[in-house]
Design a protein around this nucleic acid. Structure first.
Length: 489
RNA sequence: CGGGGCGUAGCGUAGCCCGGUAUCGCGCCUGCUUUGGGAGCAGGAGGUCGCCGGUUCGAAUCCGGCCGCCCCGACCA
């Protein structure tokens, strides 16, 4: 795809901007199958970085990976009433195989609770077998009516954690622990600040006791649910006869949790950090951290600058360097393309650093280093790259989080506002609005109907306002909770 | 599934009302000259005009049907 045209700006049309950016930065493309996308190497490279970081965090919190089948017997889904009600309408179902109609239809997993807990039931007899702390990296299918690249596709990639515990409290602690892992990942790796909290009844997972979520604010001030963690109670254990003998010798149902994040996070990354020149990738997740653009006039200069560039790339990226000192460098040695065109190319793709090396630099053993996030450009000694780059990348990572956090705060409303004012805000610029709620689902439904805004979360303590709201924004009745309202993806 | 828009070369488009097999830009290929913020010139390749049918001597264009995609709604990670 060509790089020569300007992007639609975010102000002109945020939605067009997003679609164009995803396509032109070569993160993904539309596929021949409606609602399904192809994740291209640049996008998949980001996903691989995400997987690696998260997988390390899961392992460090005691989890192990396993893999369960893509196909689930249709009857499994029906065993948990809420679950089937929530997922049946969006399931793809296999009716034929090998040219014959199947005796029992197979559902293509929309999520794997049922098949995983059916297996857990086989493996657990005693409290000594607990907890089971499993995770799987997989694809799932949900037959969506309306799709958008990364944000909602019919097939998507994710990880789903599934655990079984002896007590409610252990399961609750696990649910909260993994929500914290997600938050750490989103803030520490994606540089995307989130609000954590509990979902209301109407927004919780089908079959869960409680659902917790990480909500991030996109640049159009809409919320993106970026990760969820569910305390499933004993609902699935009862449906799949997942029982164990406890210390007292009695049979008891296990307590389950499940938690997941998906390729949707890549959409969140784009809408958190992208600008009108293209993508901006945080250093910890970008497939390429620095691109070197050699500049020359003569053949001799070309040979010399490319040679130096390649030597630097090899040194900095050597597998012999310790992991935290290794820099992912790409040399753009394409011939016949002017340096300026290369700058635009890599800026569109969000590469955090660009090093320009021309004949003048070579003579001084230096290069021009440009930051994608701030567009700052300065001279740097080539000998200093090795020692300085890790700190520069850390700075970019931190600055991107700080900028995103400042934007979140600038578009958050905490002062008491009237419901009329709330409607204006939602119809206008949008915001995260902290307000009192009387706890009535009917009020929630009415606000959604009238403003398209929903309660994103009942925020965790650290996010709540210093002075709790006393009245419901909509009815004026005493407030039961402080909640965060916003339109969402 | 309701509302709106659109299908012409890899991408974006003109032509369609007033039928005569296709315009322009970008990209791509070759050569030469270029290369510190989107190169220039010359030559060249690439299209069953979404699909099926109808009208006609003749259809990108008119008529009927179908399919697909995008956007807005209901649903949703």
């Amino acid at each position: 795809m060509s790089d020569d045209k300007k992007l639609t700006t975010r102000a002109e049309n945020f939605s067009d901007w997003y679609n164009e950016l995803v396509l032109r930065a070569e993160l993904a493309d539309y596929s021949p199958v409606r609602g399904c996308m192809v994740i291209r190497p640049h996008g998949y490279g980001v996903w691989e970085r995400m997987q690696r970081a998260l997988d390390d965090m899961f392992k460090a919190t005691g989890h192990v990976n396993a893999y369960f089948p893509l196909f689930i017997p249709e009857s499994f889904l029906s065993k948990e009433a809420q679950h089937v009600e929530g997922f049946a309408p969006e399931c793809a179902v296999v009716t034929h195989g090998g040219g014959k109609q199947l005796e029992e239809r197979l559902v293509v997993r929309p999520t794997s609770e049922t098949i995983i807990y059916s297996m857990f039931a086989k493996w657990v007899q005693s409290y000594r077998d607990l907890p089971l702390l499993y995770n799987q990296w997989a694809n799932v299918v949900r037959w969506e009516m309306r799709t958008r690249l990364f944000l909602r596709t019919m097939e998507f990639l994710w990880q789903e954690g599934h655990t079984a515990h002896a007590t409610h409290d252990e399961a609750e602690a696990e649910t909260r622990r993994m929500l914290g892992v997600y938050r750490d990942f989103m803030e520490g790796w994606m540089a995307m600040p989130v609000i954590t909290g509990q979902k209301t009844e109407s927004e919780k997972f089908a079959g869960a006791l409680r659902t917790y979520a990480c909500e991030a604010m996109m640049q159009d001030n809409k919320a993106l649910q970026a990760g969820t963690s569910h305390n499933l109670g004993q609902n699935f254990a009862k449906a799949f006869d997942l029982t164990f003998q406890n210390e007292q010798g009695q049979q008891d149902y296990a307590w389950n949790t499940s938690w997941g994040v998906s390729t949707r996070m890549i959409g969140g990354l784009v809408m958190t950090h992208g600008d009108d020149s293209g993508l901006r990738l945080p250093p910890r997740l970008t497939p390429i951290q620095m691109v070197i653009v050699p500049i020359w006039k003569t053949d001799e200069e070309r040979a010399a600058t490319i040679e130096v560039a390649k030597r630097i790339a090899e040194e900095l990226g050597s597998y012999k360097r310790p992991d935290h000192e290794r820099i992912r460098v790409h040399v753009d040695d394409r011939i016949g393309i002017k340096p300026g065109a290369k700058y635009y190319h890599w800026e569109l793709r969000g590469i955090p650093l660009r090093l320009e090396i021309g004949p003048r630099d070579l003579a001084a053993n230096s290069g021009m280093l440009a930051r994608r996030d701030t567009r700052e450009k300065r001279s740097i000694s080539l000998d200093a790259l090795r020692t300085e780059l890790p700190a520069i990348l850390d700075t970019i990572q931190a600055d991107m989080l700080a900028a995103a956090r400042a934007r979140l705060e600038a578009n958050t409303i905490r002062e008491r506002i009237s419901y009329d004012r709330f409607k204006e805000v939602m119809d206008g610029p949008g915001a995260f609005v902290y307000a009192g709620w009387n706890g009535d689902p009917a009020v929630e439904a009415r606000v959604k109907e009238e403003t398209k805004a929903t309660i994103r979360v009942i925020p965790d303590a650290e996010f709540r306002s210093s002075e709790a709201p006393t009245t419901c924004m909509v009815t004026g009745e005493p407030a039961k909770y402080e909640v965060v309202w916003a339109r969402s993806y």
